[in-house]
Design a protein around this nucleic acid. Structure first.
Lengths: 343, 343
DNA sequence: ATGAAAGCGCTAACAA
DNA sequence: TTGTTAGCGCTTTCAT
């Protein structure tokens, strides 16, 4: 703010061009000169102004991150994964929630159109057409997180929701359950859709019918899980097991079960998806699908950085699905699951 | 990136200065001219380059946020509070963890010294002298979060840890417990120290001795809570109640109690601090201290914005303590606490 | 190996 | 009301 390149140049008795070269290890500078400049810069604790540099180089060393919301460990984990890589690479992270669907476009435009960031990591499960448009005409590289299948022409990192859901439902089937219900996630949400697809396919692949009466809507909130279980278990024909599309709803289901004196897993088995910290503390421990969230963030960031540096082509589609593994608890009916340490 | 102020000026048949004035509502522009410019800008979807503008105005519309870690709902809540206000005020948020104590200085310098941000929100419970130094010579406004008392000459927003701890320990005393133990937080952490102070004072104010054997160290992790309870309850003389300095440790204590067949609250009452979401799900529900975290973030942000706009003097110390209220559960021994809804 | 100078896109002081 | 112009602090050609 105070001392600038001119001042350093003056003190070193050289031109600002030489100072710039010395500081950036860019272009030839006599070792003697370089040392002198470096020493003076050090002495005055001089740091080039990144804004000025940004104007000149069109690089801000900043990565934009837009997430649908800023709640839960889930999103915090993503940010942490990104932050770790950013730190390593000397980049800065600008985060924002998309606030609401209407304004995601606005935020996106501001981030991408304006040179505030060198690249973007975007998570928007319900992806508007408009967003896709911006995506296309944007000059900055961008990687999508948990995007829908129909965006496979972009760069995207996602959890393999389908595979995870398929696996956990097959696990339930392995227990001998025939009537397996599901509390679904929000409509239009791709994660939710994929998990539902995995559920249906697992049933069908095992010659089990997909029964409408065992499927209820939900919206990923604890509350909807609560009422989801209530509804499923108050029918004349009750499911033997329930696949909640995420752990938060499973938590709600646990609460409902407790209130209604329904025993898990004796009266009904429950499994979830996400493996949030909380699921470890439920009793019995929730059987769920572990999703490598921190890794999702860091992988996305690493790839984005490569796109920025040109190490990989930013215009070539690339999709990576991180596979999700089962975490055994007692809620599915397993009795001697590895009693995972809490810490 | 493509179209710039010159282009707009050319198309509108005016000078760039007029375009700038029209767009910023700054300086006189004939209404007719303004409309024309606005319309053209609209047509080409022109947005002034914020980097260039930043170089000129020394404002980036960006707020830096440095937090000790990026984990938990706790920090996510702070970020959310900040993000909400930032959105309202058309500001952007750059977040970073301090990575480690050594590098917090580096990060701080980069944020503050370089003009990357217009102001900073910093949370650093263990505050280095060095950090304080930077704080002082920094030209940009900064607000501290949960800072130590010895930084009362700065602008700071904090949870009233002392008051909260005092209140909850008095609540335990009200139950008739005489031997009240505590699992402390990390040494040197101001939140932890204040909570400990509140604990001690509550005892003394009620003519109860502070007994060393009932006080064990902890570090805010579930693990340390687990072993904390183990240690306290394996002594010949056991406490009747335990105040865990945060909920995560209380969670650990619950686990330990479960493993050791210790009933809460019959064998030992347990209370926590923070009111994390999880505490609602413990059985019995954890009696704890609610801290308005989102509000902490948003209040800090609002104040910082005022400092930036000059609405309040950035050099005048200002400390605000948000008071923390009790949330009743069954873990303290209360039987007919309001059964709070989960949602 | 080094310097001079032209931008980068914008704002703001000064002139007209 | 509008235009001219000098920065803002840096990078990067192009000469030398």
């Amino acid at each position: 703010m105070d001392i600038n390149i001119h001042e350093i140049a003056r003190r070193a008795g050289v031109s600002i061009a030489t100072v710039s070269r010395a500081l950036n290890n860019n272009g030839a500078v006599r070792e003697e000169t370089r040392q002198k400049i470096l020493q003076i810069a050090q002495e005055f604790n001089y740091k080039p102004n990144p804004i000025a540099r940004g104007l000149s180089t069109r690089q801000t060393d900043t990565i934009g991150v837009i997430l649908p919301e800023l709640v839960d460990e889930f999103f915090m984990d993503i940010i942490r994964g990104i932050d770790e890589e950013a730190y390593r690479a000397n980049r800065y992270v600008m985060v924002s929630s998309s606030h609401n669907q209407r304004n995601i476009v606005e935020t996106l435009t501001e981030f991408m159109g304006s040179g505030r960031v060198d690249g973007l990591i975007l998570m928007a499960p319900e992806m508007h057409k408009e967003v896709i448009r911006i995506l296309h005409k944007s000059k900055r590289p961008m990687v999508l997180l948990n995007s829908c299948k129909d965006l496979d022409h972009a760069v995207s990192f996602r959890i393999n929701n389908y595979q995870g859901a398929f696996a956990i439902v097959e696990h339930l089937i392995g227990h001998g359950y025939k009537n397996i219900g599901m509390i679904r996630g929000p409509e239009g949400n791709c994660d939710a859709e994929e998990r539902y697809r995995g559920y249906c396919d697992a049933l069908q692949r095992n010659n089990l019918p997909v029964q409408r009466c065992f499927i209820v809507a939900g919206d990923f909130t604890t509350k909807s899980g609560y009422y989801g279980l209530m509804r499923l278990m108050s029918q004349p024909e009750k499911p033997e097991a329930i696949f909640a599309a995420n752990d938060m709803m499973a938590v709600g289901a646990y609460e409902a079960a407790k209130n209604a004196n329904i025993n898990i897993p004796k009266d009904v088995a429950i499994v979830g998806f996400d493996d949030i910290f909380l699921s470890r503390l439920l009793s019995p421990r929730l059987t769920t699908v572990h999703v490598p969230i921190v890794e999702l963030g860091s992988k996305a960031m690493r790839y984005l950085l490569k796109m920025i540096t040109g190490e990989v082509d930013a215009n070539t589609a690339y999709v990576e699905e991180l596979s999700a593994g089962l975490v055994m608890g007692g809620s599915c009916g397993c009795t001697n699951y590895a009693n995972q340490t809490l810490f």
